[in-house]
């Protein structure tokens, strides 16, 4: 079963093969059917939107920004995101900062974190195979309806209705940072210039949270980004330049259908 809903301003799609609950749920399972589980994933994203949106005045993000809520009094979810933000700030030499520009805004991490969190929900309930996608970033487990690794298309940044490659992979996360529709929307904080030589940067990592944050970082770095990812164990990248040339890591090649 596959369903899509619009949450956090983007389409979110969840697929769980029907075989997962064919013989009913194990005792103590939270979700009795595949449909229940997909609903639970959507609820989880709705919670994240309410709690983390910097555009909702009642969200924890907005309340922390206005000084009405101390970080130590925030929810467990917010404190987890704050700890991850601090970790990323350290790993990026201070370039990733949830307090950049005088406002508190952790949304840079929240999309990938929200997908990983929803995947955890299904892992904990005994699901072996599923796929969760939010705005083009995907977490995969097990096998698709046919029992094969998930088939993932790499969208062309030049022709959004077409794909550059078909990939086959599972138990990984994939995220793409890029500039479809309009010019650059990610900036190199070192130069202050738009990171516009790159059309898209796709990263495959151990989970979608890691893939997402490194795709964003690598994209902001421009052409050096692919080198940065290549040097990290357990991560692979496929970078498309505006000229139409793609550069990718040898590890990425094994996912590409030839």
């Amino acid at each position: 079963m596959k369903r899509t809903e619009l949450i956090m301003g983007m389409p979110i799609t969840v697929a769980i093969p029907d075989r997962e609950r064919m013989d009913g749920a194990a005792e103590g399972a939270r979700y009795l059917t595949v449909d229940d589980a997909i609903g639970g994933v959507f609820d989880s994203f709705r919670d994240v939107d309410e709690r983390f949106s910097p555009y909702k005045p009642a969200s924890e993000t907005s309340r922390i920004d206005r000084g009405e809520l101390a970080q130590t009094d925030a929810s467990a979810e917010m404190r987890e995101v704050l700890a991850l933000s601090e970790q990323t700030r350290r790993e990026t030499d201070g370039y990733f900062n949830v307090r950049a520009g005088g406002h508190f805004d952790p949304s840079g991490l929240v999309k990938g974190w929200a997908i990983a969190r929803a995947a955890r929900l299904l892992d904990d309930d005994g699901f072996i195979s599923f796929c969760i996608e939010a705005g083009g970033d995907i977490e995969m487990r097990g096998a698709n309806d046919e029992g094969s690794p998930w088939a993932i298309g790499l969208r062309s940044p030049f022709e959004p209705s077409k794909l550059v490659h078909r990939l086959h992979l599972t138990n990984r996360g994939i995220a793409t940072s890029g500039t479809y529709i309009r010019g650059a929307h990610i900036w190199n904080p070192r130069t202050g210039a738009a990171a516009d030589e790159i059309a898209s940067m796709t990263v495959i990592g151990p989970n979608v949270y890691e893939a997402d944050r490194f795709a964003t970082a690598a994209f902001a770095m421009g052409r050096e980004g692919v080198n940065f990812v290549a040097a990290m164990p357990d991560f692979d990248a496929y970078m498309i330049e505006k000229t139409g040339t793609a550069t990718f890591t040898p590890g990425f090649a094994r996912y590409i259908e030839s």
Binding site: T13, C131, W150, P157
Partner: peptide, 8 residues
Amino acid sequence: DFISGATF
């Protein structure tokens, strides 16, 4: 099954 792309 799915498409990866910056389309949020």
